[in-house]
Design a protein around this nucleic acid. Sequence first.
RNA 1: GCGCCCGUAGCUCAAUCGGAUAGAGCACCAGCCUUCUAAGCUGGGGGUCAGUGGUUCGAGUCCACUCGGGCGUACCA
Length: 542
Amino acid sequence: MKRYLKKIFEDASQKLIYLQDVELIFSVPAQQSHGDYSTNAAMMLTKKLKRNPRELANEIIANLDYDKSIIERIEIAGPGFINFYFASSYVPEIIREILSAQESYGKSKKYAGKKAQVEFVSANPTGPLTVGHGRNAVIGDTVANMLEWIGYDVDREYYFNNAGRQMRVLGDSVRRRYLELLGQPIDFPEDYYQGEYIKEIAEKLKNEHGDKLINEDAEGIFKRTAEKEIFVDINKTLERLKIHFKNYYNENNLYEEGKIKALLDEFKKRNLSYEKEGAVWLKFTELGNEQDKVIVKSSGEPTYRLPDIAYHITKFERGYDLAVDLFGSDHNATYPDVLAGLKALNYDASKIKVLIHQFVTIMQKGEIVKMSTRKANYITLDELIDEVGSDVVRYFFIMRSIGSHLNFDLDLAKKQSDENPVFYLQYAHARISSILRMTKDEGLTANLENLELLTTSEEQNLVKKLYEFPDEVLFCSENFEPHRISTYLEELAALFHKFYTFCRIIGSEQKLAEARIALALAVRTVLKNGLTILDVSAPEKM
RNA sequence: GCGCCCGUAGCUCAAUCGGAUAGAGCACCAGCCUUCUAAGCUGGGGGUCAGUGGUUCGAGUCCACUCGGGCGUACCA
């Protein structure tokens, strides 16, 4: 119906030219008494045309050529809203469409043929993934799923760097633990990696090589082994959350392929960089940012900005129409530099979409757990999955808008009680599956012939909600708001549970029962599709 | 100091690029299982949308300032 409304408005704009000057928005009113869809077009135009909005609304309606079997009636309400009411005869169409589209109901071809990349997690291999990485991982994967639903061909990419001070310290942390295991007295600085996993890696090296590594350098086998082992663990954790990357992009490639040097030369050529105190600076002030920043340290080592810019250039070179970067709020100061650098080189920075999510706070026993990778007093993502399962982890991490802090009450999540919204959705799906098993035993099957029998408010509201799904998916995806999928699904599940309570299937007259089975099937399809976007399982039984 | 994000019911959060009477869950109170899964449903109480001013037909939403919280503000990433 929304598409239909757009169409009849477009037709009307041939006669009413001013309709072409306004963005037509059709929304579902909060109040049911305000119709199934509503538009504020008349009020938007009132300023421009200096005419009374209700009078304008009248004129618009008079020029709409619409089918009474789709729209039952149109009303003007309040200051000038135009409200549209579904014809109930349109309801069967919606159910038929869903049952015919099945697992593709809600998908869109709007961005078919476009390539997108989502870069997320991108944690350097210095330790196990933490709860904070978990939020990043789940949001990133879900955003990627959503983009696929609206037609994009999506690559998931993990960018990492295995060089630099961080990694040297990591290697040396392992080396010292190794020497400690061999009974040598060691000094273990406070700013070294304190976690148990370092000892485990040292243990493994000791088992494999005995004391042969005593004189090895921290940057050699110690660092290499640490990186390898840690990456294995990271991937195991991601696997548990059903997250798979197409590419792992090593920052080192940028050096090996000469891209860093080329970029440096390019900045110099364009007179965008200068030398001061032995370092190379980029003229960010000329590019609209606050201050100039160092891109090559006086030691000759680049800072992260240079490879970050070079890395993003590869995204353009690889032909992506959209590149999404997902960062925690601790990185919110870095991306403006990257974007400014790209703009300076005439890349279209609007193709890069940077999403910043706020931190996860873990509450345990009523207290906030402060976390630090170094000090190892953190809760790992693995431990969280052990406690509550991957469905709950995935759902909790996307159920809030990414701009909100996520308050994860571990004790509550561990309860696995009915306070958990994941179960609410899954329960709806399981309930429908159960009904379908029961009705099958009764010899009842879905029938699309008598769908007009679905006349109760529970049934009609449910169908209207189902109809919104494709628009909702499109809206969420274009606006990178995964949490709205979960909000939608909770609303849908609530409407289903109401339907379940008031509209019996078994025991109703056969035609009605079979129409209701068709509706239940349609609901299950949409629940399943929504849960698929979130990569949360949809159980047949609970 | 400056930049980004946030402030909505006792708690955790929604609110369709500015819309009509701000909604859920949890918690609290009162009901509903001889009938398809009670992990459910129905009803009830609970709000100065942090504050002040502004923009306009209309503001939780936009602007300015104030207060409070988070994250940054490196020749770390």
